[in-house]
């Protein structure tokens, strides 16, 4: 199924005059023609804003992607609004939003919603096509450019659809203290360890740090409720400026191809009790898949 098959010209609005994404969303819902959902617009807007308030849905290249699942909705909708001037909100690449793709789905259609979102994510990579869309004078022309892109809704979600850029990497000889600083700065609990060629060779996470801090024999004892304090553990935490990542890293990172189906990635994450899978394209780290994020996007898109 093509993205252009879901987005009909009558669901495209040019020249949104709003200043914010919230206003633009409301304006788009009001101005779009041939849009007759069985749910009041106020309820739709409320659902969209509730989702937006959880976390911004903005992509890169000036695309906003407000979306919501509305259980009682009787159809699946993709709407597009093009703002006359950039909105106040910015995307993850700091470019102000001016293209508002709005997706509405019932619970049963949430799989299609994910696929449509992934397709729009691909469109965000095509800067020339986006330029054509922005410059189009009619909604038919806009639709034509989207149709020309030939973007299909993939039945299978793949790693590249749900990955995000890697915030930071470390090397094997990075000091534990530096790795900890990076984790705090990038608000993550795991960092990929890259070799000289940029390939992911290991990972270091708070789990590995704890495993290194607690001697192996404590694991064999299974329970340490009888201990209030234990000097060898304290000693480890005092040694962050002398311990190197190579001494504690986990040597079996989950590395997947960008085209790996999400099902496969989730299986690896489950099977290995890990939180992150690293997406590597021709030996180069191109993204990371966060288990919590995928679960949230699949179940609460």
């Amino acid at each position: 199924m093509r993205l252009s098959s879901l987005l009909v010209p009558s669901h495209i609005v040019l020249g949104l005059r709003s200043r914010t994404l919230r206003e633009a969303t409301g304006e788009l819902l009001r101005r779009v023609t041939a849009f007759h959902p069985n749910v009041p617009l106020s309820q739709i807007l409320q659902a969209l804003m509730a989702r937006e308030n959880q976390e911004s849905t903005a992509l890169e290249s000036g695309i906003g992607l407000p979306h919501a699942r509305i259980p009682s909705l009787n159809d699946f909708y993709v709407l597009l609004g093009i703002a006359a001037a950039p909105l106040e909100e910015k995307g993850i690449d700091a470019i102000p939003i001016d293209l508002v793709f709005l997706i509405l789905a019932s619970n049963e259609k949430h799989g299609v919603m994910l696929q449509a979102m992934a397709a729009i994510g691909f469109l965000a990579q095509e800067s020339d096509r986006l330029q054509q869309i922005r410059q189009a004078r009619t909604r038919e022309a806009v639709w034509g450019f989207i149709a020309e892109s030939g973007l299909e809704l993939q039945k299978t979600l793949r790693a590249r659809d749900l990955m995000r850029p890697v915030a930071a990497t470390v090397q094997e000889d990075t000091l534990l203290g530096e790795a900890l600083d990076l984790m705090v700065a990038t608000k993550t609990n795991e960092l990929p360890v890259c070799g000289s060629t940029g390939r992911v060779i290991a990972t270091v996470s708070t789990q590995e740090i704890l495993e290194a801090a607690f001697p192996h024999y404590l694991g064999d004892i299974h329970d340490i409720t009888f201990l209030d304090d234990f000097e060898p553990v304290n000693q480890f935490f005092r040694s962050e400026s002398s311990v190197r990542v190579r001494e504690i890293q986990e040597l079996r990172p989950i590395v997947v191809d960008p085209d790996a189906p999400i099902l496969q990635v989730l299986f690896y994450l489950k099977d290995r009790h890990r939180h992150f899978a690293y997406v590597q394209d021709q030996s180069q780290l191109v993204g990371v898949i966060d288990r919590d994020e995928v679960i949230a996007r699949v179940f609460r898109p």
Binding site: P215, Y217, L218, D220, I221, L227, F230, E231, P232
Partner: peptide
């Protein structure tokens, strides 16, 4: 020994 050795490690480390 499987059960006593880890506790021995703990005690001697302490």
């Amino acid at each position: 020994v499987l059960l006593v050795a880890p506790v021995t490690f703990l005690i001697t480390a302490a």
